[in-house]
């Protein structure tokens, strides 16, 4: 029951970046298309899960004074692993995400969960928390990616990493004029702002 709760809170109650306003940079940068958002999300899930587990294991050994430095080293290690794996197996995605893969190191969500949760809870709970927040983050990225790609290019491009399964769906037919604004930088900001607004409206409705 406890573990399920730790997992599910990341899917709505504390879903980043909407409820926890953290990790905005990758959210804005890599959500031009659905497949980029999904890839980024999977990378974050991996790093968040591994770092949460490792930090939870080490939580009683790490001296509190230098804990942040230790967390960063742990996170950085897993980020390097992700980077190397992606370079080897999904080179195209690696190219698309570019600088934002090493930037997972400084993604506040990862560090924030390490400090706020993994350093105080057991291994299983931390794993559930990391997975939950990671999946929540991935969900947000895919939703945002889908909206921006659909409106900006009129397509939805799906590609499961590490496999050959890929497909590009054309949504609106040949007469659709792409709304290029959505895939540019301003579109990212405004789209995210509007989604946040939507979340607030839903929250208000639930309350009343």
């Amino acid at each position: 029951m406890g573990l399920v709760r730790e997992f599910t809170k990341g899917l709505w109650d504390e879903i980043p970046p909407f409820r926890l306003v953290l990790g905005l940079c990758p959210t804005l940068a890599v959500t031009k298309t659905l497949k980029d958002g999904l890839g980024m999300g999977l990378a974050v899930i991996f790093v968040l899960l591994c770092s949460n587990v490792l930090i939870s294991i080490l939580r009683n050994i790490i001296p509190p004074k230098v804990r942040i430095a230790c967390y960063i080293v742990v996170i950085a290690t897993f980020v390097v692993i992700v980077e190397l794996v992606m370079q080897a197996f999904t080179y195209e995605l690696y190219q698309d995400l570019g600088i934002f893969i090493p930037l997972i190191v400084v993604n506040c969500i990862v560090l924030g969960r390490a400090e706020a949760f993994a350093s105080k809870n057991g291994v299983l709970a931390s794993a559930a928390d990391g997975l939950g927040i990671g999946v929540g983050f991935t969900l947000s990225l895919t939703v945002l990616g889908s909206i921006r790609e659909a409106l900006g290019c009129g397509t939805l491009s799906l590609k499961i990493p590490f496999t050959d399964i890929s497909h590009v769906y054309n949504l609106f037919g040949p007469s659709f004029k792409p709304f290029a604004f959505m895939v540019s930088a301003p579109g990212a900001f405004i789209c995210l702002g509007m989604l946040l607004c939507l979340m607030n409206i839903i929250g208000n409705l639930k309350k009343s």
Partner: peptide, 10 residues
Amino acid sequence: NCLPGANCGG
């Protein structure tokens, strides 16, 4: 020490 230390500025 009680704070997350993520320095997110939120």
